[in-house]
């Protein structure tokens, strides 16, 4: 019996395509489940911050609520607006979902758990996060609706602006780590919580989180949706499962940005207790995937925290913040990061 299982296992491993497909499923299925519970988490957290209860009817503590929502959306009719562009209207949600999932290919969960350990991982992630905006623009245009179109225009300008600040924040990490491989970037941060890049790159860390908010069109930068001004922005004409796919893409993007923040600035799967005298020698000091997931959840929580705390930015102020505040700061700090390496304050790639 055991022999048979073993032989099946080795056969699957030899079939490169099947093995990769299994790995992809092992990443995406938990990701989709995480998205479902992230929506529940969001409603509970924001409810608590606003002294409400949040969903509590479906299942114990309302835990089945996300599934109720999913089935409701899947069973609803997809309405095609008159004079809309049918093909682009239906393709847009898929275009916005695909990059959000494809980017997970290079995300290292720990030292060896990574689907594609590529050298240009950081660039790949930057490229894919910049593609998500196409779904929004195409949706806005194909809907043949003024509100959707306005939302799409806002999203396009906002994403292109904040991408620059985000790219420079990544350049800072690149200079300190000396590599674009995400796994090696984490390994370069070894040595305890004060060796992670949030400390030497503190302004870039904050700017990366702000641009992450803007890239995912989340509050307080959610002018692309802006329900008080333009109803629901780019997805105002969407219903049923097409809307659900947009929703999925947005939350998958938020989890992705949280995971990347954990990897780039908070040491990925490294333990924060590394090198601490007593605690570091216990189980807490070990590096494991649990640390990566815990850090990701912390950053995911911050997304919700911002939403409950800040009022929506005015559109022109978003542009001003991006171009006149964040980009100059990143430019200066990238040079400072290079100086830190040259002067030996931070040892490159160690």
């Amino acid at each position: 019996m055991l022999d048979m299982v073993n032989s099946v296992y080795t056969w699957i491993q030899s079939q490169y395509l099947i093995w990769t497909l299994i790995k992809i499923l092992v990443i995406t299925i938990p990701l989709i489940t995480a998205v479902a519970f992230y929506t529940y988490f969001e409603r509970k957290v924001i409810g608590a911050m606003q002294i409400r209860v949040g969903p509590n009817r479906v299942g114990p503590l309302g835990l089945i609520q996300p599934f109720a929502d999913v089935f409701k959306l899947l069973l609803k009719e997809i309405i095609l607006p008159a004079n809309s562009n049918r093909f682009l209207f239906l393709v847009a949600p898929i275009i916005s979902l695909a990059p959000a999932f494809a980017a997970w290919a290079v995300v290292p969960f720990n030292d060896f758990l990574v689907l594609a350990d590529v050298d240009a991982g950081l660039l790949y992630v930057l490229a894919l996060t910049s593609l998500g905006v196409y779904g929004i623009i195409i949706a806005g245009w194909a809907s043949n609706s003024k509100y959707a179109f306005l939302g799409a225009m806002r999203a396009a300008a906002q994403t292109v602006s904040y991408e620059i600040a985000m790219g420079f924040a990544l350049v800072g990490v690149l200079i300190l780590a000396g590599t674009m491989n995400l796994r090696e970037i984490v390994l370069a941060q070894q040595g305890g919580i004060f060796d992670w890049y949030w400390l030497p790159l503190a302004p870039l860390f904050v700017i990366y989180m702000i641009s992450g908010l803007a890239e995912t069109n989340r509050a307080p930068f959610d002018v692309a949706e802006g329900e008080s001004e333009i109803v629901a922005g780019f997805h105002v004409e969407y219903s049923g499962s097409a809307f659900a796919v947009f929703f999925l893409a947005e939350y998958a993007n938020m989890i992705l940005i949280s995971g990347l923040t954990a990897i780039l600035f908070a040491g990925g799967w490294l333990s924060p207790f590394e090198g601490v005298p007593v605690l570091g020698e216990t189980l807490l000091g070990e590096h494991s995937i649990i640390w990566f997931l815990a850090k990701t959840v912390v950053f995911m929580f911050m997304f919700l925290w911002y939403r409950a705390t800040f009022p929506r930015y005015r559109y022109d102020q978003i542009m001003r913040l991006g171009w006149k505040v964040l980009i100059p700061i990143t430019l200066v700090w990238v040079m400072l990061a290079a100086l830190m390496v040259v002067l030996g304050i931070v040892v490159k790639g160690s």
Partner: peptide, 20 residues
Amino acid sequence: IILVVVYVGAVMVLFLFVVM
């Protein structure tokens, strides 16, 4: 990847913006 980042991710978005 730079082709995708620069042209697809930024230049073509602005193109689309203008054409729309």
